[in-house]
């Protein structure tokens, strides 16, 4: 059964599966709004300063606004790991569609094609394209072969429950191991009743009449390498 998800998978030539979580239009427009605000403020301040310089000042303001509008994202994407300030705040990053870091060519294409996404008004084409493509790509992304993904956070190790560790007496598939580890790690997020309910599902498998939660936590800790 093909389950709906926002995961994007790439297999490297070495046979390693890389995965990334694709970022959709809502969070991306929030990031864009942040960038727009920053640009607006920067331009506002510069304009106030340069307004005293007469016609030359206006010329410089126009030049700066052009550069800000077109090259602000390029600059940040190249020199800040694919993250403009807004993207960084929303935890997003731009990558090539093979999940390598974005390069000059792709970044330029995806940002210069913003005018196509902007058409006819306020990125309407970009929104439609993001909804219709499978990888939430706007037109510029399609042309440049780039993606916007969530930057993976380093996993914070949660405190494991104290219990006696022991290996599993029965074979566990990879997914089962992950489930048992999750059961152990999320011990303080799930209610005790729910944990008991979950542990009771495996009653026949673990063949324990009582203290099933502790028994499963023991296996989970063992899988995580606790001695």
């Amino acid at each position: 059964m093909n389950q709906l998800d926002t995961i994007y998978l790439v297999e490297t030539p070495e046979g390693i599966d890389l995965q990334a979580e694709l970022a959709g239009p809502i969070v991306r427009s929030l990031a864009y709004a942040i960038d727009l605000t920053i640009r607006g403020f920067a331009l506002g301040i510069i304009s106030i300063v340069l307004a005293f310089a007469g016609n030359i000042g206006i010329g410089i303001i126009l030049l700066i606004s052009f550069i800000l509008e077109w090259f602000y994202p390029v600059f940040f994407e190249i020199y800040n790991n694919g993250q403009t300030i807004g993207k960084k705040m929303m935890g997003l990053t731009v990558v090539n569609d093979d999940l390598t870091a974005i390069n000059w060519g792709s970044s330029l294409i995806r940002n210069l094609l913003r005018f196509a996404d902007f058409f006819p008004f306020a990125y309407l084409c970009g929104f439609i394209s993001m909804i219709l493509t499978n990888k939430f790509q706007r037109l510029g992304d399609l042309a440049a072969g780039s993606l916007v993904i969530y930057k993976q956070k380093t996993k914070i190790n949660t405190a494991l429950p104290k219990c006696q560790t022991h290996p599993s007496p029965f074979p566990l598939s990879f997914e089962d191991q992950i489930a048992i580890i999750a059961f152990t790690e999320r011990h303080d997020q799930l209610s005790d009743e729910r944990q008991q309910e979950l542990a009771d599902i495996l009653g026949d498998v673990i063949q324990q009449k009582s203290r099933r939660i502790d028994y499963l936590r023991g296996i989970g800790s063992w899988l995580l390498g606790v001695k």
């Binding site: 566990l172 598939s173 997914e175 089962d176 992950i178 489930a179 999750a182 059961f183 999320r186 799930l190 729910r194 979950l198 599902i201 495996l202 498998v205």
Partner: peptide, 11 residues
């Protein structure tokens, strides 16, 4: 913990 329940039931 739906994800855990699904795997546990499967197991």
């Amino acid at each position: 913990a739906w994800d855990i329940e699904i795997r546990f039931r499967n197991l």
